[in-house]
């Protein structure tokens, strides 16, 4: 593992004082408060090598980790969000969208496409928390739904990696209806007997959790992920008592029977490939050409 290459005597004290840390060179783990050389952290798939805390990945980072090299092909990137309701809170939604698009490498809160995972061809949907909290608006609903519809026509398994704070409030009722739209698509997958594996990462709550993310044939969670319907703050305010330790975290959700497996990130790809092979036989001919357009 990468961090073993670091000098043995590296301790917390040995990291340079805060004010001289070059921007971006070191990563401070918010769980164990250790400083980690950023390259080591990235090589360790954004998992703290000291305490094992799993940090958020962008959709592109996640795809790079899951897809076999050079196999990712994105669909429906040309579907873009619009401010249909002229929603304006502290800033107009239109502006919020522009800001979100210029901020990172995300073009919406989900990317969908086809790739191979350890040789298995699958349709993959990966959400991105950097884009307005991974919130589900019309574009997320549409891209996920089209992916599932394509899975039925192309007969390919679906893997979804979720991370979301819920519905996108700025799209109001339209975002709520994406729960219906994606759940209807899940009903289609079930009827067509297409395997659907849902991966829950930190955090997956509210509208996404109360729709397609909960409807996988198998549900996999990353360690320590916040998973639930209501956010902890809302619950705390409602019941006015301290929440139990580990409440709504992966192990809690596993213990209560709403997740099949909790898998460390380094084993995620292999686990997904194995699950697919349990349910799905790869077609013998690999020469099948799938048309690009839907």
């Amino acid at each position: 593992m990468a961090w073993f290459r670091k000098p043995q005597y590296t301790t917390l004290r040995a990291t340079p004082p805060r004010d001289v840390i070059p921007e971006g060179l070191w990563f401070k783990c918010t769980e164990c408060v250790n400083f980690i050389y950023r390259k080591d952290f990235e090589r360790n798939l954004m998992v703290c090598p000291k305490c094992g805390a799993h940090f958020k990945m962008s959709a592109m980072e996640r795809i790079a980790m899951l897809a076999d090299e050079g196999t990712w092909e994105e669909f429906n990137a040309h579907i873009r969000p619009t401010d249909a309701l002229k929603f304006c809170d502290s800033k107009p939604y239109e502006k919020r969208l522009k800001d979100a698009m210029s901020k990172g490498d995300a073009n919406e809160a989900v990317r969908t496409g086809r790739c191979k995972i350890d040789g298995h061809t699958v349709l993959l949907s990966v959400m991105d928390f950097n884009f307005i909290g991974g919130s589900m608006g019309s574009v997320v609903g549409e891209r996920v739904t089209r992916l599932m519809e394509r899975a039925c026509t192309d007969r390919l398994p679906v893997i979804s990696v979720a991370t979301s704070g819920g519905a996108r409030m700025q799209e109001s009722i339209l975002s709520l209806m994406q729960m219906a739209k994606t759940s209807a698509a899940c009903a289609m997958l079930a009827r067509e007997r297409i395997p659907y594996i849902s991966v829950l990462t930190d955090p997956t709550t509210a509208g996404v959790m109360a729709s397609f993310a909960s409807l996988g044939d198998v549900i996999v969670a990353e360690p320590g992920a916040l998973i639930g319907f209501a956010g902890p703050r809302v619950i705390q305010q409602t019941i006015n008592q301290i929440l139990p330790r580990g409440f709504q975290r992966s192990d809690f959700v596993l213990a209560h029977g709403f997740v099949d497996i909790v898998v460390e990130r380094k084993y995620l790809k292999a686990t997904l490939a194995r699950l697919v092979s349990f349910f799905w036989d790869e077609p013998k001919s690999t020469a099948k050409v799938v048309p690009m357009a839907l």
């Binding site: 759940s183 009903a187 109360a210 809302v234």
Partner: peptide, 26 residues
């Protein structure tokens, strides 16, 4: 709204809602 509480989360509020929505299409 659906109740936001400890028991509701323990018993899978999100799953219950998701399943209902999906099943209603069938």
């Amino acid at each position: 709204g659906a109740y936001p509480g400890i028991g509701a989360e323990e018993r899978g509020q999100a799953e219950a809602i998701a399943r209902n929505i999906m099943e209603m299409f069938t």
